[in-house]
Design a protein around this nucleic acid. Structure first.
Lengths: 206, 206
DNA sequence: TTTATTCTAGAACGAGCATTCTAATTGCAT
DNA sequence: ATGCAATTAGAATGCTCGTTCTAGAATAAA
């Protein structure tokens, strides 16, 4: 009953992700996507109601892809080892999916959209955020027996912030992280958690 | 022989820096600066030849301010302690100058300009980069007795990447880093350097 | 007081880009 | 064959800036 699609949703999203990884979301104009695909702009708007929605989709997919695996590792097995495995998943992800990781880690969320997201996308972002929060909180409680602000800060540091920092220079150079990256992450992980007692202030009364 | 200036160069730069720290360089339009200052756009162009030059000035000032103190600490006294002091200067800088540090650490250089810099500014940026490079290289050599790629990677990790990572969440929330940040940086510093022998691959023949 | 000079003022212009609109095309169902 | 819904096609529109331009005001020297 209808004409066949020459460009699929996924092709559009992939082209957008590719462009964004290469030059940053700011450079991703509808015109640029169109010429990357050799498609007319109309076809893009036929599928995506706005640039914000399209770039948002790229961002959400990247986060969802990363976070699913990260969360799975974080909650599998004994906490200490689970945490290390989650932390080391960051460089693994960068090696496995350079495009998503560049989009995710090299730019800020705000660069992907400015304001207008439809409700379902807001929902997805909300879900992602709270999933990560509860994952980190559960981990903090089971490993440190507390989940107050300083404990969460420490946990976020070893699981997220440091792995990111280790990987960032490689992302900028657009080359896979070398082996030393994993060793830096592991060393920091062990040292920070072994010193947790000294690092954290005494527990506040609940 | 001439009319008095109602707006000084520095006022314009400060207003730009303030806006940029608040909402990111992307949001800094000439119109926004003008209304922040209650000045006409013409007065801004009377002093700065383009938006790129103005934002570039903001960025260069921030880097210069940070790097001068950082480099001074890095080369003062015994290397191990000098390095720690340099690393800890990152959170100190964030506490002392939230505006510059937000501009510097929360955004990418490319967000401050896209292409067209006049030669003198290119020169300043060049100088900054090579100053940092030689500082790190000198430090690596005196502490690790080598300055090959892996050694530089390690050094950059403990002196720059980790302090940045520790401080970033606080910058995003626009609140001063808490005390735990300094302890995390110090712990990571000591642990990574103590394990340097294990972290670094054997020296390549020169 | 005149004049040269440096600024303020803000309107006008033009480029780039997201978005919309109107017109073909295409392939299936009848 | 014919009609219809989905899709391609790309020209047209309008908005948001950066930048330029022209006019007017303030100041100090002559």
């Amino acid at each position: 009953m209808a004409r066949h699609a020459k460009f699929s949703n996924d092709e559009v999203i992939d082209a957008t992700a590719r462009l964004s990884a290469r030059a940053g979301p700011r450079q991703v104009t509808i015109g640029a996507i169109a010429s990357e695909l050799a498609a007319p702009t109309g076809s893009i708007y036929h599928r995506f109601s706005s640039r914000d929605v399209l770039l948002g989709e790229v961002w959400l997919r990247a986060v969802e892809g990363f976070q699913a695996a990260f969360a799975a590792r974080l909650s599998a097995g004994a906490p200490y080892e689970a945490g290390l495995s989650a932390a080391l998943y960051v460089p693994a992800f960068v090696r496995a999916d350079p495009i998503s990781s560049r989009n995710l880690l090299l730019h800020r969320r705000e660069d992907f959209f400015q304001g207008a997201w439809p409700e379902p996308m807001v929902q997805r972002a909300q879900t992602l955020k709270s999933e990560l929060d509860t994952g980190l909180r559960r981990y903090a409680r089971s490993l440190l027996d507390r989940a107050d602000a300083p404990a969460l800060r420490l946990v976020k540091f070893v699981l997220v912030d440091v792995p990111l920092a280790a990987v960032l220079p490689h992302l900028r150079n657009d080359e896979p992280p070398t082996g030393i990256v994993d060793r830096l992450i592991e060393t920091t992980y062990r040292a920070s958690l072994d010193a947790a007692k000294h690092l954290l202030p005494p527990r506040r009364p609940v």
